[in-house]
Design a protein around this nucleic acid. Sequence first.
DNA 1: ACCCAGCATTCCTTGACAGGCATATAACCA
DNA 2: TGGTTATATGCCTGTCAAGGAATGCTGGGT
Lengths: 102, 102
Amino acid sequence: MTVDAFAVLAEPSRRRILDRLRRTESSVGELVDALGMSQPAVSKHLRVLRDAGLVTCRTAAQRRIYRVDTAPLRAVDDWLEPYRSMWTTHLDALERHLDSQE
Amino acid sequence: MTVDAFAVLAEPSRRRILDRLRRTESSVGELVDALGMSQPAVSKHLRVLRDAGLVTCRTAAQRRIYRVDTAPLRAVDDWLEPYRSMWTTHLDALERHLDSQE
DNA sequence: ACCCAGCATTCCTTGACAGGCATATAACCA
DNA sequence: TGGTTATATGCCTGTCAAGGAATGCTGGGT
């Protein structure tokens, strides 16, 4: 949580892991197969994601099942908000313009 | 453009620069004063932001006026989209639950 | 108790910045 | 032209993160 979500998301492999987990929670081994990375690499990325609160983990026998937690993403979304309104405002202006042309 | 917007945004100083430019476009010197960083540091960050298309620059006499371009941020927003719907969906469910309690 | 599967962690090496300082470049002015 | 302001860039160094290989650890099965 003390960790910067932006910095964590800067790594493409981690975004791929999240994109995979977003569809189905999965074990480390499943991620290894799906993403074609080494098991230590996946485990390390999961560690970073976990420290940032972006994923949570439950134990099922010898396997760890990971799933996404969106909480830290809201901080990212919040930062993005004012910028988003910049382009939606412009879009609105564009729409008004187009409407006025009809 | 070939540059990853996420990686560029990973640097807190660069987000601060964007946050400043979002309110008012400004010259390098103004950013230096506002953010309390060295001029070379600011110039280097601006270079990275420019290469990523996050800012554009026009020349006014000996000064360069920088401003935000939101285009690359839409890619970030698009990536975030499915996650955002994850928590809004949950919020909707929560609201329904609370409503049913009244 | 032993062995194995599934993960985590360590060590090591390599590469990618970030910041400071000095310097180059460009535009303006006298 | 020479000087000055405003900005960009080069060089150097310290720091940190990523990936590979090997190893540690834990729970389950026999």
